[in-house]
């Protein structure tokens, strides 16, 4: 699964990066985000792209794993 680090990137870059990642690795992506806006936006995008999403909290960072069903 492709890993994408979006830390420090502001709206809408994290979602664009997730979108591009999903195009390159259609089975799923792992996206690291560092703020709530990016977290909710990326999560919403992955769900709408047909992924099952799991969320892991690591303090300031959150890892979103989106796997295509």
């Amino acid at each position: 699964m492709k890993k994408i680090d979006t830390c420090g990137m502001s709206c809408p870059q994290p979602v664009l990066m997730a979108k591009k990642g999903l195009e390159q690795s259609p089975e799923g992506v792992e996206v690291i985000v560092d703020n709530t806006t990016a977290k909710t936006n990326v999560e919403r995008f992955l769900i709408s792209a047909g992924c099952a999403v799991s969320v892991e909290d690591h303090g300031e960072l959150t890892i979103l794993k989106g796997k295509k069903a």
Binding site: C11, P12, L16, K19, T37, R44, F45
Partner: peptide, 19 residues
């Protein structure tokens, strides 16, 4: 809510996201 006037149209074009 992250309300943003430009984000509304941008996300519709980019991601078909109407939030």
């Amino acid at each position: 809510s992250r309300l943003c006037m430009v984000g509304g149209t941008r996300d519709m074009i980019l991601f078909k996201d109407n939030y």
